[in-house]
Design a binder for these strands. Structure first.
Lengths: 249, 249
DNA sequence: CGAAATATTGCAATAATTTGCAAAGTTGAT
DNA sequence: ATCAACTTTGCAAATTATTGCAATATTTCG
């Protein structure tokens, strides 16, 4: 058994049971407690768990939240992303907002699609920094760790001085009367500015967020040109939006 | 059996089992473990898998997972980073330039060290976006894919408006007469601006870059306060720098 | 075709890493 | 305070890596 398998096993078990002990791991992995201790120490040094006497417990849960949210409803997000990809033309300049659905879009961009992507989201940037055809522009600023986006003056300033073809906005909450809203003030501020610099605004969202609302408003529903969801376009859920003249995919 | 067949077999097996070991492959392919090891090394160099002790595991092309980081960090860079960490105090604001040595520093920051890190490097940002104590500020701009840093107006503007305690600069080439130089013009421009906004400038480098030069100059040697290398401080290699009054660690 | 250059493979010696063990400290619950 | 449970440290044995080398195989040319 490879060491890496042991490490995976320990992390998985920790996730399942919220704790692991040296004894139980030693038995399950068929190695000495010393080895388990050393494995746990390695993981602790990389911030993946917290070493305690006799075993380990999970680290702060919010650390993994973004990466875990990516895999939440992954299938639905891929459906949404697939539809959104149809809106892209080579040579365009697009804005990719933070959010796990926009991340999925970024991960599905064809290797030969030559577009310019502007983003304030770090995982998206890390993903596209290796993309062979995409030109990548990153908004600067203070990093908001919960959603892994940059915020503040620097980011706002960049978007104010910019004009792009399409903005893909990841939605926290979408309601046909309230519009788009989110649960962080600074994030709402940035999103709002992103919308304003785009000729076309496309909201991408899984349908569980449709009809919900959060404290901080990003924009009115009328500012949207298109909504992309995994729902079929004639679903009742989407009627209020089509009635307002918003394209629905 | 053709070599290509072996490579395909290894990748297929890796896909099926999420791991391969030298022993199992050696048996299945009827070649020595040495050959399997060399095959795996070849695949690893092409980024198709990750070589680990005793075998290989799949490689996620996107983000740097902890398992990959462990193997990525080179011993001599760790030595340099260890020394550099000694210069840090809680509460400080530091600048981390792009480069693998600065990346190593970032990956070794203690989890409870509360400092503010400003960087223009995407892998460093991706790494520290999950750090529990570090406040992260990212310089915006166009991403230069070769070294994964942001460059251009936005980044320059941010550094011009900033004053930090210490700048850790990753060195491409260091020469006691020429100073620091690099092989990309835009990069030199940004590095140069980063230096200027710091009260203390620390060059971090492995000793293979000492005494070399590249086309584009970043700064004079006199602008450096400290050089950190893995070399012992009384090495002949470092004499020219101590003679100029530069601290050497 | 055939000889030289190049690549591949297995082997052996050496180096590096990992693992388990035991002795000597720490910790913390009763 | 005591004692069992856990940690730490140093060490030796086992495992895996690296390197140089020789024996084949393969390709490249004239």
């Amino acid at each position: 058994m490879l060491k890496e398998e042991r490490l995976d096993f320990i992390l998985q078990r920790l996730k399942d049971n919220q704790k692991v002990t040296l004894g139980e791991l030693s038995g399950a992995l068929q190695v000495s407690e010393d080895t388990v201790r050393r494995d746990i120490e390695l993981l602790a040094n990389n911030g993946l768990l917290m070493k305690v006497r006799g075993g380990a417990i999970p680290h702060s849960p919010n650390v993994h939240s973004f990466k875990e949210r990516i895999h939440l409803l992954e299938h639905n997000k891929k459906q949404v992303a697939e539809k959104a990809l149809g809106l892209l033309q080579p040579g365009q300049v697009i804005l990719l907002d933070g959010g796990t659905t926009t991340y999925t879009i970024a991960s599905m961009l064809p290797h030969d699609l030559a577009i310019t992507v502007v983003t304030n989201n770090i995982p998206i940037a890390a993903l596209l920094a290796d993309h062979p055809s995409v030109e990548l522009i990153l908004a600067g600023g203070k990093v908001f760790k919960n959603s892994q986006v940059t915020m503040g003056m620097e980011a706002l300033r960049m978007f104010r001085r910019m004009r792009v073809d399409t903005c893909f906005i990841g939605v926290c909450s979408l309601h046909h009367e309230i519009g788009i809203s989110t649960n962080d003030y600074g994030e709402a501020e940035v999103k709002s500015e992103m919308l304003k610099c785009a000729n076309r605004v496309v909201a991408v969202t899984t349908n569980d967020k449709i009809g919900t609302a959060e404290p901080y408003k990003v924009c009115d529903i009328t500012e949207l040109d298109t909504i992309v969801t995994e729902e079929s376009t004639d679903s009742d859920l989407l009627k209020p939006y089509t009635a307002l003249g918003i394209k629905v995919l």
